[in-house]
Simulated assay, not measured.
Amino acid sequence: MDRVVIVGASLAGWSSARSLRLGGFDGVIDLVGEEPHRPYDRPPLSKAYLAGDLDLDGISLLTDGEDASVTWRLGVRAVGLRERTVVLASGEELTGDAVVIATGTAPRLLPAAAGLRGVHTLRSNLDADALRAAFVPGARVVVIGAGFIGAEVASTASKLGASVSVLDAAPEPMAQVFGPEMAAVVRGLHGQHGVPLETGVSVAGFSSADGAVTSVVLGDGRELPADVVVVGIGVVPSVGWLEGSGVALDNGVLVDAAGRTSVPGVWACGDVARYPSGRAGGPIRVEHWTHAREHGAAVAKGLLGEPVEYDPVPYVWSEQYGVMVQFAGFVQPGDSVEVVDGDPADHRFVAAYKREGRLVAVLGARIPRTFVRLRRELMTV
């Protein structure tokens, strides 16, 4: 193997490239990225970077000297794949002995908001820059979606002095991740910090003036005044460029336990990949930072001739209103949950989830020692 083409210059793609070098690969690595920037950390985009506490250099994923280890092809999209040849929007074609798909995800959009100024999604540093400029003291901000991104953006906007409201269509946001009982605890952070949260509400459209949003129209006819709207209703895997390639797609790129796709020599990792998981009971696609890093490294091992059976315990963290919430594992309906340390009323607690008496997940806030102990136990189950 003399040349590897990696499509996607964020955490998963960069993790694959870095791991190939650490594993002794000395051939050519082409790293293709749609954005003009070299890899940077995305979680701070809704937190420290959005608040202005970090700049782009402060969230770079590269260490000194690493920038020379790959051939950078940035600011250009991949538009097609033929066997092991990647076609770029520029017309250039890159053929490798192996191709790694690490194109991640893109935010879901609301068609009714198309072309309206003041309506934002958050995926890139430029998105965060635009939001920071809009979150002026007193600005009326409506966040649509009470998942991780929505909650973190609401927290940061409130910190910057904006007047924030949060909406979610689900009656119990985050219940699929945390279960209904503990999801209610985490959601309580909004109210505790003076941010109204409405659940079970639909968005029917938007009102505007001179092309700029002025309010969010709800399904029941009410209107919420808004100078800024942030849409955080989830993401979709970025696979459109793979149509007709022969790569099997189903809510992402289907891969085996080592990260191989249905096309020989083509691999996939990170948010875009859907892999078989015995822990989850079937194929899953995970959108967490830790997964992107670890899956990228696992695929690199496979490229180097040491394929691994990838099926880790998922781990995610979220910082909201100054509280670090950590979660590991999978929760299914019917799982029992018990607070084993602290008090949820203080948002300082650890909760253990069990299924038929077996530990399957752990949720914690501000008691790291207990959380880490149970997470280690979970990883050995």
Rank of each mutant, 00 (worst) to 15 (best):
Glu198Cys: 05
Thr63Arg: 15
Gly259Asn: 12
Pro368Lys: 11
Val4Glu: 02
Val266Glu: 12
Leu303Gly: 04
Ala133Met: 12
Gly147Tyr: 06
Leu304Gly: 01
Pro196Ser: 04
Lys354Gln: 14
Val236Arg: 11
Asp346Trp: 10
Pro225Ser: 15
Ala113Asp: 14
Val86Phe: 14
Ile284Thr: 13
Arg373Lys: 13
Gln332Tyr: 10
Asp250Val: 06
Val86Tyr: 13
Arg187Gln: 15
Gly179Thr: 00
Pro314Ile: 00
Asp57Trp: 03
Glu93Arg: 13
Leu122Glu: 04
His291Ser: 06
Asp256Cys: 08
Val195Arg: 09
Val231Arg: 05
Asp341Gln: 14
Leu189Val: 03
Gly244Ala: 04
Gly179Val: 03
Ala170Gln: 05
Ala248Pro: 00
Tyr321Gln: 09
Val350Ala: 06
Leu62Thr: 07
Lys354Phe: 11
Ser15Arg: 13
Pro283His: 08
Val166Ala: 01
Leu167Gly: 08
Ala184Pro: 08
Gly145Phe: 11
Val299Gln: 04
Pro196Phe: 12
Arg38Leu: 10
Ala226His: 11
Ala212Cys: 09
Val337Lys: 01
Leu109Trp: 00
Thr156Ile: 03
Leu126Ala: 15
Ala112His: 05
Arg293His: 13
Leu56Phe: 08
Pro173Thr: 05
Asp55Thr: 07
Gly80Asn: 05
Gly302Val: 11
Val79Asn: 12
Gly24His: 02
Ala12His: 12
Phe327Gly: 09
Gly329Leu: 06
Ala169Met: 10
Arg373Ile: 14
His193Cys: 08
Leu303Arg: 08
Ser262Trp: 03
Ala78Val: 02
Gly205His: 09
Gly33Asn: 09
Pro180Ile: 11
Glu92Ser: 14
Ala113Phe: 02
Gly8His: 11
Thr105Arg: 13
Thr199Gln: 10
Glu319His: 07
Leu303Met: 02
Asp341Asn: 01
Pro43Val: 02
Asp127Ile: 05
Glu338Arg: 11
Pro283Phe: 09
Ser208Arg: 03
Arg222Glu: 12
Val299Thr: 12
Ala328Ser: 11
Asp26Arg: 15
Val217Gln: 08
Val255Phe: 04
Val350Ile: 13
Ala352Asn: 07
Leu62Ile: 03
Pro111Asp: 12
